[in-house]
Simulated scan of single mutants.
Amino acid sequence: MTQQGTLGIAVIGTGKMGADHVRRINDVISGARVAAVVDVDEARAASVADTAEGCRAFTDPAAAMAAPGVDAVLIASPGPAHEDALLSAFERDLPVLCEKPLTPDSTSALRVLEAEQKLGHRRVQVGFMRRYDSEFMKLKALLAAGELGRPLMLHCRHRNASVHSYFTTEMLISDSVVHEMDQSRWLLEQEITTVTVLKPTPNANAPEGLSDPQLVIFETSGGALVNVEMFATCGFGYQVQTEAVCERGTARVGDAHGMLVNRPGAWGGEIAPDFVARFEEAYDREVQAWVDATRRGVVEGPSTWDGYAAAAVCEAGLRAQKTGERTAVEMIERPALYR
């Protein structure tokens, strides 16, 4: 490690997410510094590198990983570029925090899974940040303690105010509901076995061609049911809510009960504008946990298996979205490294 134990990180991708992680490492968390940044846009990489003392800018991920002072890699580039970056990191046995998706499909995710197994140890933490949100952590602890009995159902709501014009119907599953896929597997400690997608009349305010909202239903290996309302163009803000229905009670998170204000003819509070604001603390906690674990020489958090499982469930979801039929999830048996 560089700087008396300080972790030197190469951040790959300097778009919205990557630049935010550079800021986070610079200004928020401890025990790490940004040693290198990578982007195909050389000028953008240089601009972001200027915000971190001693940081070098690269256009090639492999060159950045080989640079002096780089001990670990944070991948925040577009999903199709993740596989090559991950395999390059494996060649150097570098620990990685990889933003979701691990890769865009289960076939490439399986190649990454097999490559990591050849190392004989875990190297990847996948960036499913909801596992680090304080409310979801409390819900996880409550369910794990068994106070309310076995969880029978999860009711989930995932709402965005709006989406970019390039956002597609398929992205409702692969970019948005993928979070509920991982969240459900984590909360229930069960695999998702089938996916069904139902489509009401589209929102008139959605971009042309976008079939929004949708209702997505998961069945799990333990007999639980999960329903997800995915509404990407609700118009009023960003909301992520989950209610667990158990044998002896229910528990709900995501209502954002901060300050409530009464004023003439109205009452209420604030709704987060986007995912960066809603999950800012979760991202901080996630990156700090990764840095702390890496400095101890261990890998914790969501694994390559979790990234592969999410990709497999996404593919079933996309098939279900097209056919309207209940669709089975196709997955390999979980390898011993991830048990």
Rank of each mutant, 00 (worst) to 15 (best):
D20H: 14
S30I: 04
R33C: 14
V34W: 11
V37R: 07
V37I: 07
V40H: 13
E42F: 04
A45E: 08
C55T: 08
R56P: 01
T59E: 09
A62Y: 13
A63I: 10
A66D: 14
P68S: 08
A76T: 15
A81S: 14
H82K: 05
L87W: 05
D93A: 15
P95V: 11
V96L: 07
L97C: 04
C98T: 04
L110R: 15
A115W: 06
R122A: 06
V124A: 05
V126F: 12
L139S: 08
L139Q: 07
A141P: 00
G146I: 08
E147R: 07
L148T: 08
H164T: 11
S165A: 13
M171T: 00
I173V: 15
D175Q: 14
V177Q: 12
M181A: 14
D182Q: 05
S184V: 07
R185S: 14
W186T: 04
T194L: 02
V197H: 04
L198C: 05
P202C: 02
P207I: 11
F218C: 05
T233F: 01
G237M: 06
T250M: 12
G265A: 07
V276A: 13
W290D: 05
A293W: 02
A309L: 04
A310H: 02
V313P: 01
L318N: 03
R319T: 13
A320C: 02
K322L: 12
E330Y: 01
E333L: 12
P335I: 03
L337I: 12
